[in-house]
Design a protein around this nucleic acid. Sequence first.
DNA 1: GCGACAG
DNA 2: ATCTTGTCGC
Length: 251
Amino acid sequence: MLPGMANAPPFTWPGDRASLAAAQDTLACASPPPWSLPDGPFLVAGCALVSTRGAAGAGGSGDPGWAAAVLLEVGAGPPREVAAADATGALGAAFETGVLALREGPLLHAAVAALPRAPDVLVVHAAGRDHPRRAGLALMLGAATGLPSIGVTTRPLVARAPDVADRPPHPGPLPRWGNDACVLEPLVLDGAIVAYRVRTRAGLRPVVAHAGWRTTAELAAALALGTTANARTPEPIRRALERARRLRARA
DNA sequence: GCGACAG
DNA sequence: ATCTTGTCGC
């Protein structure tokens, strides 16, 4: 077992929709202790998965998938890559919105677990509490590994941005922002802020930072901004995707 | 590397 | 078209 993940509860990835829904409901209702960003430098892992080339969502159940996890040290200059790991195998299902865990959960979990050291926090290319059952893959993967997690995506899943006048008060402090990188608007589900739209680089399209396992949307926004280097996509996700594609190319 | 688009 | 990814033009 990965050092630091020894306290992870046993976790078996559901193999069908019904058991996935049950697991999502259980995790959505759990209240694990909130996690806070450390003061000094800390370790962030990013993970992502690619499948066979083709149209969007290519690769069905049984088709190959390539997962990669990268370990970065942040908080002391630009993100520095410390380690990486991979996992290759069969996808559990075709892509379908809301049940991404069925497709990618086991392989992503394996890649993260194969890292030589546990990160302090995990960044997943998927939604978290912004989900029909309030437990997207970013949240599930955090629970599965026993690590605090956030999600980073291009678009929200089911959360919406209220009109400015209807915005709820921020439940916690937001990261500092400026002209080049800023929090744009809260994304709300059932009155709760589950994500923020965040502009990571001036003039570029924003990304969505999702609350996940033991994390708030405010922390997710701060971590997304804090791990962005010279590209729109935060480094943990950008590098994990890059590594997964290289892995596929060598296959 | 990014946005648009397909899906 | 709503968590993913791909290709294309720039």
